[in-house]
Structure formats: structure tokens, C-alpha cells
Design a protein around this nucleic acid. Structure first.
Lengths: 194, 194
DNA sequence: TTCTTTATTGACTCGTCAATCAATAAAAAG
DNA sequence: CTTTTTATTGATTGACGAGTCAATAAAGAA
């Protein structure tokens, strides 16, 4: 029963299924068949819409990044003042939608994928630049030329705590991760790191 | 020409070849054949000595961790005073032997492996505990109960910067990574993060 | 010298998986 | 009503790779 306009629906379903499947498997060794099955279609259809496995992964990566971007944007919308905006960025990075085990596993695997795929690499670079730029925008007015180093440390700590969370087996608290980065932010704003 | 006592030699060669091969491939999709070939033997022999692919990976992981551990121990040996010891730990974490692209790729892939392999997971937990414990040992006398949070942040930043380095294509400076963590250390010791 | 142990490999099995393709079906266009 | 376009899949192909095994060879032991 070929209803027209299936393409976007199928694509979205495949992207979601990819993330779920990576989360369930814990690595990128997920087959097109298993993804397609989870999305309720045949593997042939997945190939039909995406062309190949790599492109399915890339689409999932873009989706994850765009969800994160939206989260940050929404958080920034409600924040006023540089300090509040910085806290919003940090909070969004550890928001529950990015902090699900599935999503973390997906991120982690993207880092691996980025080592071989130019496209994946580029997407991660974009993410890093955006995070850095967001931080700089509000750090610079507060601490001037010290913003550069502070942004590098805050961004690094976010990534590091995210990585640790990916390793943790239990569904640990994102509140703790957030608190750690906020503590660092405090230190940076008080100017004790140069 | 079966000279006796080949086992340790072959095992060591396979471990080294595994790290090289992962570094060259950029992911864990390296075949036993390619590893064995790089190590100058048949894949059958690799299976003979290790039993299976997983165990080859685990051995490579143990080796990487033990090299890192030795590096830290050596650095601590020559350092006197809590502050110097902390700097030694940080320096060792970014020492050139761990900061080679091959080794970084291997670490990254171990994080992925740890999501499915209990053994791999355990090894990484041991690493994290050791790092944390090393940091705490010297932080506690300096800043007392604030040591806990400080150790989490420093360890997190080390991991995060390591991750970023794994993503960077160019052979960037470990001096910068070290400097960032040292700046954080400064801030923590001055007590501006609580 | 004969037997056992260690070293070593080529050839093979078995499974898996990405990608293709021909075939089916239903909507829409003409 | 015919043709084209979109949707969909089962079956198949072709490649690759982990693990096994029998066979070969050289030491050392008896």
C-alpha cells in the first residue's frame, strides 16, 4: 500500500532506529538489517532511501547534533546575562536528551567513526567550534583575554565528563556532571586560572 | 625452525601490531589476519597463542594501560612535594608515549569496546580509579575536603582533552593540553572552585 | 633412534552482511 | 484505462573474516 511521501517518514524512522540500535549493541557493529528491522522495514528499503550504511550513520549523527544544537538554543533563549547564558550552555550539554545511554553510546561511536570518515570528522569539528564559539561569546565580556583558555577547559571538561558517563554502567547523575562544570565556571570567572 | 620459547615473543609482537593496526585503520575493524600479517606470522598462529580476537584486543589494552602506569610511576619517582607530584601525573598523562595518534586511537576504541566487553570495561574502571586515587593522594593534603571535586574535574579534563586530541587530524601540541590542565590545577589549589 | 612437545602454516568451513535486482503493488497522471 | 512513478520486499550475490584442522618441521627427551 504505497502511500506517497513515505521518504521523510522512513528516513526519520531509520535515524531513530540507528541510535536505538547502536545504544543497544554498544558499538557500531550494527547491521543495516537490524536497523531496518527495528524501524519496521526491509533492509532493501533502507538502502533504497539512504544508499548505503555510511550515509545512514551520518544521518544519525547529524540528527544527534541537531538535537543538541536545538537544546542549546532553547536554553539560551530563556537566559539573560552572560553568566546565566554560560550556565544554560552547560546545562543543555548534559540535558537528559543527550545524556541517555543510547545517545552517549552513539556519540562515542561517532568519535570513532570520525577517525575514518571525513564527513563524520567534519561534523564533530563543527560541534566543537560551535561549543567553543558559544562559550567565548559570553566569556569574553566577563574575563577578556582569559576567555580563550577558559573556553578550552570548559569544553574539554564537558567532553571528558560526557566520556566518563558513557563508560559508567549505572544511569548515574547528570546533576553531578553539571555541578562539576559549573564549579569550573566559577573558578574561571573568579580568575584563578590564567 | 621452531626455536622454543616463541610464545612471549609472538604475543608481544601481536600486541604491538594490534596497536599499530588500530592506529592505521582508525577503528576496531581490524582483522586477525591483518594484525598477524603485520606481526609477521599467520593468522592461525595468532589464534593459537591468543585463542581469539577479543583476547588479542584485551592484551593490547592491558599493554597500553601498563605503559601509561609505568609512565606515571616513573614521573612520580622524580617529583618531590605534593604540587610537583600532581604536575608529574598530569605531564605523564600527556607524555608522548600516550599521545601518539596510534595510541590515542587505541584508547578511543577501547572506550567503545568497554561498552560491550566486561573485561575491557573493568580495565578502564581500574585506570580511572588509579588516576583518581593518584590525584587524591596529593590533593587532599593541599586542599582537604575540596580534593574530591578537584580530582573529578582534573581527571575529567584530562580525558576530555585526550579525546579532543584523538579527533584532531594534525599532530597538535600536547604542550597545550598539559598547560590547560596545569591551569586548572592552579585554580583548584587556589581554592576558587568549591 | 624413536617419541613427544612446540612451532607454524595453508587450506577449508561456516557464517554474516552490504549491496543489488527483479518482481509486486498501489497510487497518480495522462 | 493505460502508463508512469513511488513504495516495498524476498531472494540472491559476492566478499570477507573468524576460527578450525590436518599436516609439516624442528627441537629436546627417552
Amino acid at each position: 500500500m504505497p502511500k506517497l511521501g513515505m521518504e521523510p517518514i522512513r528516513r526519520a524512522a531509520l535515524v531513530k532506529a540507528t541510535i536505538d540500535e547502536i545504544g543497544a549493541a554498544g558499538n557500531l557493529d550494527v547491521t543495516v538489517s537490524s536497523i531496518a528491522k527495528r524501524a519496521g522495514m526491509s533492509s532493501a528499503l533502507a538502502h533504497h532511501y539512504f544508499g548505503g550504511k555510511d550515509q545512514i550513520f551520518l544521518a544519525a549523527m547529524r540528527h544527534t547534533l541537531s538535537v543538541y544544537g536545538a537544546e542549546v538554543r532553547a536554553a539560551l533563549m530563556t537566559a539573560t546575562g552572560h553568566r546565566a547564558r554560560l550556565e544554560a550552555i552547560i546545562g543543555a550539554s548534559f540535558a537528559s536528551s543527550n545524556f541517555q545511554p543510547d545517545v552517549i553510546a552513539t556519540w562515542l561511536n561517532f568519535y570513532v567513526l570520525a577517525q575514518t570518515s571525513t564527513d563524520a570528522h567534519h561534523l564533530l569539528v563543527v560541534y566543537q567550534r560551535r561549543l567553543r564559539s558559544n562559550l567565548m561569546y559570553d566569556l569574553q565580556p566577563l574575563i577578556g583575554q582569559r576567555a580563550e583558555g577558559a573556553a578550552a577547559r570548559i569544553a574539554g571538561l564537558i567532553d571528558g565528563l560526557y566520556l566518563r558517563q558513557g563508560l559508567a554502567r549505572d544511569v548515574a547523575d547528570q546533576s553531578d556532571a553539571t555541578a562539576q562544570v559549573l564549579a569550573l565556571l566559577d573558578a574561571e570567572l573568579q580568575g584563578r586560572a590564567q
